[in-house]
């Protein structure tokens, strides 16, 4: 379901990524300063208010005693704590140990817990309410757009020789309302799953690169290349797996439980025999022909 929704908003996500200005760090604005000028001018008047259709909401998964803080007052959740007991945490989450720069997760009231492996809630988070863990399902309306892809030779493959594919996925930041509060969600690519259209698939940790960028000769084998065995027309689909982090205010990024997968636009590949393609085209007349 999440995948379907992401598919439906993929185009909107691309447009949004183009339209959205860069996210600026928080800037101070005292009352006295705001009286005489816009402060800070670049944020207030800079058009950040253009949400581009990301006025999104996700629901908290039910109430949990004393764990408010993310949902606003309109959520109606009670924040009352039992007298004599520590206040329950505001947000708990479990994250990905492979995520650079994240070694622990805030678990309410200043406690920091070590990360759980494989996004499983194995790490004791005894004072956390599972209901307040932010999951991918809470982000279903935040757009993560499809990664741009490339291949060479462009649109062609020579049977028996390597065809190189790559993707230029990068970290994306979306903004909207999460659990009823303004928030930012950052998607970081963590895996690339290639379906080459001939029943062969592979998964790679990186998106690959062109032969030129890799310093390799044409038709060299790369981590993301594929060699077709028979001539035909194939549809290659790349699915990028993203890890998500969210941020309320300036509290820093926190991991979201789960991953998002976004399929790319299929690439049509015409595989032909070497003898056929080499005699059928003139590189001067068709510079994009195979081998040119």
């Amino acid at each position: 379901m999440v995948r379907q929704k992401l598919l439906s908003v993929a185009l909107a996500g691309i447009l949004l990524a183009i339209c959205l200005p860069n996210i600026s760090p928080a800037s101070a604005c005292t009352i006295s300063a705001s009286l005489t000028k816009n402060c800070p001018e670049e944020i207030i008047s800079g058009g950040v208010t253009n949400g581009g259709g990301v006025d999104l909401r996700a629901e908290a998964n039910g109430g949990s005693g004393g764990t408010s803080g993310t949902p606003g007052p309109s959520s109606g959740r009670s924040g009352a704590a039992t007298p004599g007991t520590p206040a329950a945490p505001r947000v708990c989450a479990h994250g990905d140990p492979a995520k650079p720069g994240i070694t622990s997760i805030p678990c309410g009231n200043g406690q920091f817990l070590p990360l759980a492996r494989n996004n499983t809630p194995a790490t004791p988070c005894t004072v956390c309410s599972p209901d307040t863990i932010v999951r991918i399902s809470d982000l279903q309306n935040f757009p993560a757009y499809a990664a741009p892809t490339g291949m060479e030779p462009n649109g062609w493959a020579i049977v028996g020789l390597a065809t190189n594919f790559w993707a230029t996925a990068s970290t994306q930041i979306s903004e909207g309302l999460l659990l009823g509060q303004p928030a930012q969600v950052m998607f970081t690519p963590t895996g690339y799953h290639w379906n080459y259209g001939d029943s062969n698939t592979t998964s790679t940790a990186t998106g690959g690169a062109s032969w030129d960028d890799l310093g390799l000769a044409e038709f060299s084998t790369t981590a993301t290349s594929h060699t077709y065995a028979t001539k035909d027309t194939y549809s290659v689909v790349l699915t990028v797996e993203y890890h998500a982090d969210y941020s309320f205010g300036d509290q820093g990024w926190r991991p979201v439980e789960g991953t998002v997968t976004v399929p790319s636009t299929p690439i049509t590949v015409i595989a032909a025999n070497e003898s056929t393609v080499l005699v059928a085209h003139d590189c001067n007349a068709n510079p994009h022909g195979p081998g040119c």
Binding site: A28, V54, P182
Partner: peptide, 13 residues
């Protein structure tokens, strides 16, 4: 201790 302008969507409009 701080009054930081929210850098994202203006939720006051």
């Amino acid at each position: 201790d701080k009054e930081d302008v929210w850098s994202g969507r203006n939720f006051c409009q």
